[in-house]
């Protein structure tokens, strides 16, 4: 290599080390190193100042406690690790210390998609926190642990930023200074001073990102808990269904951001129609036994929803 070529190569190497202003503007702030850091990054409380009603609706929903659940989710995550991931011969996980973000995405793909912005230490901290919460007897400590798990949730920024844009080649990539909805313009929040349009936010495909189509083939070991959008696409739509998830779970129910399912009276009324009909028969069986009265009960259940019932 000539001196000239060496200098060009050296300059090229230096250029790679310098910060790129275009990338820096839209790049993430680096991986969160603790649960607290990740929770703070996705904290919804600042949204409450202006969007109080929506915040209160959301606060009542399971999205606000997506890792804790009812609280059935958190123990189920531990079951998935202990009875699944640790037993799989090629997972690389034999003990809690082996758990990484990649392993926890088995559940977090839907329950905490922002976990991909955290270090493996956070994945291990989550598992340790849930396990400590499951064993804790002291009420105060239990409450603190529960609050810590609950701080990890599907908050405003998950839907209105991280997952807001689905067709990224057409609509662009989510920017950290922007919240996405139906409008474009300025947003009165110093951390998120811009509003951008999320074309799919009101469509069923948006919810389908998590309430999915079955096995998540993008994972090394596909989990398959969520099947609703598959049912919506391949059973409801072919039957002539034309409403979106948002139509029923947010608008018609009047629940807004308090998206509910079978626990909500409104949703139950909207979900099923039942009809019961009963009648008697008289069966002339034979000479010995004579005429025998019989009952016939007919039950019809009409599933009015846009997906199978039940579903997880």
């Amino acid at each position: 290599m000539s001196w000239k070529e060496r200098i060009i190569a050296l300059l090229g190497g230096v250029a790679l080390l310098l910060p790129n202003p275009i990338l820096a503007k839209s790049s993430s702030p680096g991986k969160a190193k603790t649960i607290a850091e990740l929770a703070a990054r996705y904290d919804s409380t600042s949204c409450k100042e202006c969007h109080e009603e929506i915040y209160e609706e959301w606060e009542n929903s399971l999205h606000a406690r997506s890792m804790l659940g009812t609280p059935r989710t958190a123990p189920t995550i531990i079951t998935a690790i202990e009875k699944g991931i640790k037993r799989f011969p090629y997972s690389g996980v034999k003990k809690d210390e082996d758990i990484t973000v990649k392993h926890l995405m088995f559940c977090a793909k839907c329950h905490l998609p922002q976990l991909d912005e955290a270090t493996d230490d956070v994945a291990r901290e989550i598992v340790a926190t849930i396990k400590a919460w499951m064993k804790e007897d002291d009420d105060d400590k239990l409450e603190a642990l529960e609050a810590k798990i609950e701080s990890l949730n599907i908050g405003c920024l998950v839907c209105h930023q991280k997952k807001a844009l689905i067709h990224k080649w057409a609509d662009g990539y989510p920017q950290s200074d922007t919240v996405y909805g139906s409008q474009v313009g300025e947003h009165e929040d110093e951390n998120h001073p811009k509003m951008g349009k999320a074309p799919a936010l009101g469509e069923a495909i948006f919810c389908g990102q998590c309430h999915g189509q079955g096995p998540n083939f993008e994972l090394d070991h596909p989990s398959q808990c969520a099947t609703l959008y598959g049912s919506y696409l391949f059973a409801y739509i072919p039957e002539g269904g034309h409403e979106s998830c948002q139509d029923c779970h947010m608008k018609k129910s009047g629940l807004g951001h308090d998206m509910q399912a079978y626990r909500s009276e409104e949703m139950v009324k909207m979900a099923l129609d039942c009809e019961v009909d009963a009648q008697s028969y008289f069966w002339r069986k034979n000479k010995k036994e004579g005429v025998i009265p019989m009952g016939l009960v007919r039950v019809e259940i009409f599933n009015k929803t846009g997906h199978v019932v039940p579903d997880g």
Binding site: G84, F106, S223, S231, E239, G241, F302, N303, K304, V308
Partner: peptide, 27 residues
């Protein structure tokens, strides 16, 4: 279990379909 992805039967109520059950019994 989410990892038990095989040989499953779909026993759900399908959307926009009526599921009819008949119970016939001797009285």
């Amino acid at each position: 279990g989410a990892w038990q992805i095989k040989e499953l039967l779909d026993l759900t109520l399908q959307p926009l379909k009526v599921q009819e059950e008949n119970y016939l019994f001797v009285l």
